[in-house]
Design a binder for these strands. Structure first.
Lengths: 204, 204
DNA sequence: TCCTTTCTGTATTGATCGATACATAATTCA
DNA sequence: TGAATTATGTATCGATCAATACAGAAAGGA
């Protein structure tokens, strides 16, 4: 069923990816329509026809970010054979992703919109929800470790999930400050040192 | 030597404090001149006469924040008898400060301006410098712990300072997400668990 | 009292914000 | 081929941005 009317002359998916990069680098409020249209290679009427509004474009961009940029970080959680390795791989992939050159540093979900009082309530709510989901994913993996007997029954999964999620948020700010990969890995080393004490299981 | 000309009719220090609270809640770019003048109870010409520009006002506000709001957090570093207690008090004071009601949550220095690409280069540089100073303060306290024999000679002060500074940054985002004090203290507990492994000294 | 200096309030500046009106171009359907 | 539909480019909308011009008010110095 071919579409009616004049066909679109730009690649919607490619334009969305460019928009994601602009939001990633500048945040929701810091990214102006001029920034977006310039990066996307289109005029504002095309943007509004294809995406609806700046807010809707941002929500699509974060969805793309979650689906594309976060896969290596979060798939590590599932692939790792133990909870301990899951957390360590998760943090190491974070350090790697946050220090890659040629793209914005840190995480769009963590840094995209932190000041609720502005006119971006829905944006802040969406990012907050995604951050909460990240903690939930950590929590589930830790609880699996308890269920499988890797971790003691009294292991405090909630505390550990909160802690590691918070460490990852901090790494976004660290990365924005220009931290090298080795500096980010120092944070990982510190966070994994906590594991030893929390789980009572040594060995590196 | 009395001042020439018509005297100012508002309290400059009180107005600066109001401005600090607005920047704290909304960030540098999110705080408009209208927001600022409304909170300060003055008109924009008075703001410019007294502070110079929005940028200069922000720099004064961060200086005030560092001097007033951070004292309990950073004085804990010096007062604590051991490096271990210094870090723990530092984190506990952070959890307490970041979860106080009736004021913005999280840290102005950590959250005030994270997107450099905007037109706020000097602002971002100033905040980044202050964040680096915070890590340096942690580093000095840890090195003192080594010098005093509390910590082993091969204790990696740099890694630990980076780690704890990053945890504090993460706690700002956690606080912005509405985390309760007990949730922030979970992060503190996780971070202090790392101490046991890093320093090789147990006991709570 | 008059002059100088500084602050205050009103009104406004040019620039930029997010979002659209409108005419034209390009396609499908009948 | 003509009508309907959708996209594009130009040009612009009212609102808001940070920052000021200007005239009047309130002080000290002469």
């Amino acid at each position: 069923m071919p579409e009616r009317g004049r066909p679109r002359t730009f690649d919607r998916a490619a334009a969305l990816r460019r928009a994601m990069e602009v939001f990633w680098a500048k945040g929701y409020e810091g990214a102006s329509l001029s920034d977006l249209t310039a990066a996307m290679g289109i005029n504002s009427p095309s943007l509004y026809a294809a995406f609806g509004s700046k807010e809707a474009l941002f929500l699509e961009a974060t969805e793309l970010y979650t689906r594309v940029e976060g896969t290596e970080i979060w798939s590590a959680l599932e692939k790792a054979p133990t909870a301990r390795q899951a957390i360590e791989w998760f943090l190491r992939q974070t350090a790697k992703a946050y220090s890659q050159t040629g793209r914005p540093q840190g995480c769009l979900i963590a840094l995209g919109a932190l000041h609720q009082d502005s006119s971006c309530g829905a944006i802040c709510d969406d990012l907050r929800r995604r951050r909460a989901e990240n903690r939930e994913a950590l929590l589930r993996r830790l609880e699996r470790g308890v269920a499988e007997g890797e971790l003691p029954a009294d292991f405090d999964c909630g505390t550990a999930a909160t802690f590691y999620a918070t460490v990852q948020h901090g790494m976004s700010i660290q990365a924005r400050d220009g931290a090298s990969r080795s500096a980010l890995l120092e944070t990982v080393a510190g966070a994994m040192a906590a594991w030893i004490a929390m789980a009572g299981t040594g060995a590196a």
